[in-house]
Write a protein that binds this DNA or RNA. Structure first.
Lengths: 248, 248
DNA sequence: GAGTGGTCTAGACCACTAA
DNA sequence: TAGTGGTCTAGACCACTCA
């Protein structure tokens, strides 16, 4: 008898270990408030070096699954991570999926225009030829128009853009089809009075404020490629952040 | 002639290197959008191993100073970090210092009380004896009452608390005097209608919303020790977040 | 003192970028 | 192809916690 064994080339051993332990934590194989096996034990279990185990544990700590305590061990946390809706780089589609609500996206505007002076500054545009995609989308949840997303995207990064793409997910298109990778974003949250545009496009009866989330999105090579202004009806707005004092 | 040379025991070599490079970036010795010296060159410069250099660079990347690109190098970012007011674990005192405004703290309440059922859940209190410090502070900036901070602190972690401490900085007292270390916090931001208490204690004429920041603060051993609800007048509220797709 | 995590080394090989 | 960062190893020593 012959057994065919598929040997996967596992690059990123520490990420495999990380995922494995995440599984064990979410399945409660490792109980909250208890200690993970020691680094030495994990070395044996996974047959790898200590530094590799430590990389996996560092990842777990950074993502809020464990807390490392010198001399003691790694404590499994129960801070529920599943209620982190907009934290990080999450898009509306992911958010709506998580909320599990009826949601719809209405594309109000999709145009390729020369940038305003403001936008030239924000998107770091030098060339006089570069154009900017202006997209406006209204997000409807349970038949109420809740969010107005105004996107500004450099044409040098994204040449083509269709209403279909805008209606589903620009991020999936950019990262999937175009193969670009978003690596970091800066968010700024403030509260403003609604503009006429807000009042026209959103269901704002009785609300005297909107929550404005300004989002500066950067690619892998540290170049900015998109600016998004997300204008939320205040009663439906929620932002969760997990802050950690990182040493290493 | 005898020269006394003080040799500092430098533990955390990689943190020294990190700080050194942060200096060079903020002083623009390393220019934005240019490449840092390669890891090999930095090894020579600092006379250390590559892994140690890499730890320093990882820290720089996590804190938004550089962006590492495989095969190319480390790009110096110019995302200005000095306008990150409340991000992370920053306290009001630090915030006010950064803003450089006239600020004052009024302690409205300081009591040691038995916890409500809600608070027992939030602070993970099992014992029937444990008490909770309830602190209410109003933050005044430029003679306007802008923020109401409501703190709930476990008595088992902090036995004594004075009005003086509350008026300056609870965090400095806890981390300095008591030697406790805050390691992570979960923040939740929503917008609510002002309560009567908000209206009484803050200058809210004409404002129909407050921004509520709920803060769950944990110590090094992963135990929760404080819950804070920070209620902001919306026009003065600003939150900045730097999100990064971390791999390692 | 035994066991834990934290730091550091010297070297190897791989994957990616750019000329 | 040369140079860059990414992963991994085996081992050393240190700092901290707890019995």
């Amino acid at each position: 008898m012959i057994e065919w064994v598929l040997v996967m080339k596992m690059r990123n051993k520490y990420i495999q270990i990380y995922k494995d332990i995440v599984d064990d934590i979410t399945k409660a194989t490792y109980q909250p408030q208890t200690l993970l096996p020691s680094e030495h034990e994990l070395m044996d279990k996974y047959g790898t070096s200590r530094e590799t185990i430590r990389k996996a544990l560092t990842l777990l700590a950074q993502n809020g699954f464990i807390q490392k305590v010198q001399g003691k061990g790694s404590i499994v946390l129960d801070t529920p991570r599943f209620d982190f809706p907009i934290s990080g780089l999450v898009s509306f589609k992911e958010l709506a999926n998580q909320l599990g609500e009826n949601h719809k996206t209405i594309v109000e505007k999709l145009e390729l225009l020369p940038p305003t002076e403001d936008m030239k500054g924000i998107l770091q545009i030098d060339s006089s030829e570069e154009m900017v995609w202006e997209v406006q989308r209204v997000r409807e949840i349970d038949d109420e128009k809740i969010i107005l997303d105004k996107d500004y995207i450099k044409s040098s990064k994204v040449e083509k853009l269709s209403r279909e793409v805008c209606a589903s997910s620009i991020y999936e298109y950019i990262e999937g089809e175009l193969g670009l990778t978003i690596s970091f974003a800066k968010k700024e949250i403030t509260v403003e009075e609604p503009t006429k545009e807000d009042r026209n496009l959103l269901d704002l009866e009785g609300f005297s404020n909107v929550v404005v989330v300004k989002n500066y999105v950067y690619l892998e090579d540290a170049s900015i490629f998109q600016y998004t202004e997300s204008r939320h009806r205040p009663d439906k707005f929620r932002f969760v952040d997990f802050a950690r004092r990182t040493k290493n």
